[in-house]
């Protein structure tokens, strides 16, 4: 039963892949060696497509890999498998948190974690900047976009659309 197997394998990935979407890649590579669902070469294509389409990369990867293995239903089942551990674990944590939210030590820890999360976002942003701001022109567009975001404060979706148009017009 390939659907059951798909659900189980992606459930495992969801359970052990801690962090951002690309952490699923090594797990998928293992899958490509264990099963004949997709080849490592196809995996490279999948990464390229998952990164440049809307949606979280990890989810895109699961849909694509599941589709390659067993069609439309395969994509759906692999994706559901991937997100099930998150839903279970986070619901448990929410319950625990509402129990301890008045605890002073818990609050001190949460407040202390915030600067560290900011550091994590800085590094994620830098990684993204490395692949996005490849030359002076890209850097200049970044500076202009950043300034207009600060100045006009329109919705992020507006700026995503604007930057797509800039990309096409300037042939980036």
């Amino acid at each position: 039963m390939i659907y059951l197997l798909l659900f189980f394998e992606f459930f495992k990935i969801g359970l052990f892949a801690i962090g951002g979407g690309l952490v699923t890649v090594p797990f998928l590579f293992d899958l490509s060696e264990t099963y004949a669902w997709f080849t490592p070469k196809e995996l490279t294509d999948m990464i390229a497509i998952a990164e440049s389409t809307p949606g979280p990369i990890g989810v895109n990867m699961a849909t694509y890999a599941g589709f390659n293995a067993a069609g439309i239903l395969g994509g759906i089942i692999a994706t559901l498998g991937l997100v099930t551990p998150s839903v279970i674990v986070i619901v448990i944590i929410c319950r625990l948190m509402s129990k301890y939210s008045c605890n002073r030590r818990v609050n001190t820890m949460l407040e202390g974690i915030r600067p560290a999360v900011i550091a994590l976002i800085v590094f994620a942003g830098l990684e993204l900047a490395k692949i996005s701001l490849v030359d002076l022109v890209h850097g200049l567009i970044f500076a202009i976009l950043f300034a207009s975001i600060r100045f006009y404060k329109k919705s992020p979706i507006f700026y995503l659309g604007l930057s797509a148009i800039i990309g096409v017009v300037l042939k980036l």
């Binding site: 996005s132 890209h138 567009i141 976009l145 604007l162 930057s163 148009i165 096409v168 300037l170 980036l172």
Partner: peptide, 13 residues
């Protein structure tokens, strides 16, 4: 091209 632009937008946001 569009995605190269979008990536810059994401970094700016």
């Amino acid at each position: 091209y569009a995605f190269a632009g979008i990536r810059i937008g994401v970094v700016a946001l």
